[in-house]
Each structure stands twice: as C-alpha cells, then as structure tokens.
C-alpha cells in the first residue's frame, strides 16, 4: 500500500512536470514577442485576445494543422527521430531538478522534487548532452545544406561550451561538498554562491546562453545566414517540438543558474514562500535571456570558438584552482 501511494505520487509529479513544461512555451513565446516588441518600440501581438494573450494558442493551432512535410531525399527515420531526441532530454533532466523542500497538502508532506539524486548535477549534464543528437540528426537527415551547416555549427559549439560549463559548476560542488542539487541549495542558506563564485557564475551563464542556443550564440539557427539552421526543413508539429525543446532548455538553464548560484528557494529580505522566491528568480533569468536576445548581435563563428576556448575555459579552470586554494586556506586550522 505504501509503495502504491509513493509510486502514485511520483507518477503524479512527473505528469504535472510534463504538463508544465509543455504548456510553459505558450506564455514564454508571448512574453518573448512582447518584450521584443517593446524593446523595438513596437507593441508585439495585440489582436488575438487581450494584448495578444491568445496568440500562442493560435500559433499552436496553426502548427498542429500545418502539413508535416518531409523532404524527398531525407533520411526518413532520423528525420522523425530527431525532434523526439531533441525534446525528451530537457524533460528528463527536470526529474533531477528540485523546486523546493516540501509543501504540506492536506496534512501530508510532499517533496517538491521527483528524486533527490546524490549525483543530480552529473545527471543533468549527462542527459542534456543527448539533446545535441536531436539537433545533429535533424540537420543531417533533412539533406539540406543549410541544415547541415547549422548542425555542424551546433556540434562544434556544444563541444566548446559543455566543457567550461562543466568546469564552472565544480567550484559550486566544492563549496557544497555535494553534487546533489538539494544539498547545493541547502549549503546556500546563509550566503548565495554568487558571492563566492562570481567568475563561475559568469562562465556558467555565458556557456548556458550557448547551450540554450540563444543570441548571442544562436549560430545553429542563425536566421540571417542559415535560414533557421537545423530545423530549416521542419514544419508543423515537428518544428513545434524543437521550439518546445528550446524553451525547456532555456528554462532549465535559468533554473540551474538559480539553484547553483542564486540560492535556489532561499529568499532575502522579503519573507515570501520559498516556491515563489524560486519562481521569481527563474522568471528574472528568463527575462534576462530574452532581454539579451534583443540587445546583442550574433557572434561570428571564430569569435564563438575563441570565447569558448580562450576565455571561458581558462577562466573556469582558474576558478577551480582559486576556489580550491581558498577552501584549503580557510579549512586549515
């Protein structure tokens, strides 16, 4: 009986998470277009619903009813597999991501995470790496030059940026003495990691921008020079899969930044509920992502590589060494 309740709870949590992740792109696309509009002194969508609030729904219906087109010379199996490979990992990752400690519903304490893995951070980086396969397969299978170029760029970009991203979090792991995201947040109860790890945050955030393929690192789908990159040939619901995956990764990077460097659900000054604090911080970073997108131009390809290998990698390594030395110095009696 106990087992069934526990299993039921996990199934419920997973279903809830999937529902949220699938529905979140709707407000996010609206927000992105609105912010884009206002930054460019336009209004953004205004005609569907109040201030265009129903625009994402209209877009969703449009994508669902569009022809699902597969190019004649495409590798049909990989072409169909790619959107799923791109969509699944960001969803899987959220299994390991905590959103808070516990809430009590009807007298029962419910934990706000699906699982408390002791290697959650490793799991996150391992699984999110799989997402790249979706992008690469998608570009390759479409048998289109633009798509292949986009895929190749993604390949190089992911390899270049996954390494500094992984190094950047080592400092956080050293401070918390744990790879469990829950423990990392608990370790930040007094002082947030951003105070100890500003360089780590910088490297992680920039690498996260590249990981989420947002401007200024959106070379994989550069509209201007590649005409959408790896998903040039995709249409309809498969295209929507890529978009949902992109927004899920954007959310994931925001969530990770908050958990690793901004104290997770630990609040300051205002005694708000922890979950609200968490949501506010994540929302802020999502805003920053969108804000960046409409402020900066895209980096050139060689600049992207130079930033990855010549700036972020040495910085993240120096960060590990300095953190280690300082930790050793303070730990010594």
């Amino acid at each position: 009986m106990e087992l069934i309740v526990a299993l039921g709870l996990i199934v419920f949590k997973v279903a809830f998470l999937i529902a949220i992740l699938l529905l979140l792109p709707l407000p996010l696309t609206w927000l992105e277009r609105k912010i884009a509009g206002h930054i460019q002194q336009r209004m953004g969508p205004m005609r569907v619903g109040w201030h265009g609030l129903l625009q994402p729904v209209a877009d969703g219906i449009k994508l669902l009813t569009k022809e699902d087109h597969i190019p004649a010379d495409a590798d049909r199996f990989l072409f169909k597999l790619a959107p799923i490979l791109a969509l699944a990992p960001p969803f899987v990752v959220f299994v390991a991501v905590p959103f808070g400690e516990t809430v009590s519903v009807l007298g029962a304490e419910i934990t706000l995470y699906v699982s408390n893995m002791n290697v959650a951070l490793l799991f996150v980086f391992a699984v999110i790496g799989i997402e790249v396969y979706g992008v690469i397969f998608g570009g390759w299978a479409a048998n289109s030059k633009y798509a292949v170029l986009g895929s190749l760029r993604t390949c190089a970009q992911m390899i270049s940026y996954e390494i500094p991203m992984g190094f950047a979090v080592i400092g956080v792991v050293m401070l918390a003495q744990s790879m469990s995201l829950l423990e990392i947040v608990r370790a930040q109860a007094d002082v947030w990691n951003i105070v100890y790890q500003p360089v780590g945050f910088f490297v992680f955030f920039v690498a996260g921008l590249a990981e989420a393929q947002r401007i200024p690192f959106d070379l994989a789908e550069a509209e201007g020079d590649l005409g959408a990159g790896f998903h040039t040939e995709y249409s309809g619901i498969r295209f929507a899969f890529f978009m949902v995956s992109e927004y899920a990764i954007m959310l994931l990077v925001s969530v990770l930044v908050v958990i690793l460097f901004f104290g997770g659900w630990n609040g300051v000054l205002l005694p708000l509920p922890p979950l609200l604090w968490f949501a506010l911080k994540v929302a802020f970073f999502i805003y920053v992502f969108i804000w960046f997108r409409f402020t900066f131009p895209r980096y050139r390809y060689d600049q992207l590589m130079a930033i990855g290998w010549k700036v972020l990698l040495p910085l993240s390594m120096a960060n590990i060494i300095i953190t280690g030395v300082l930790l050793g110095a303070t730990a010594a009696p």
Binding site: I35, G37, H38, I39, Q41, R42, W291, F294, T295
Partner: peptide
C-alpha cells in the same frame, strides 16, 4: 559596453511604442 547596451534596450522597453494601431 555590454552593460550600456542592456541599459539602452531596457530604457526603450519602457518608452512609448510608435505603433499606430490601424485599423483596430
């Protein structure tokens, strides 16, 4: 320089938009 750019776009975000809502 990046900060300056961000401040500029942030300022523009709260400026009035020039859109004329024709024909609504």
């Amino acid at each position: 320089d990046l900060g300056k750019a961000l401040a500029l776009t942030f300022g523009y975000m709260f400026s009035r938009s020039v859109t004329m809502q024709y024909p609504d």
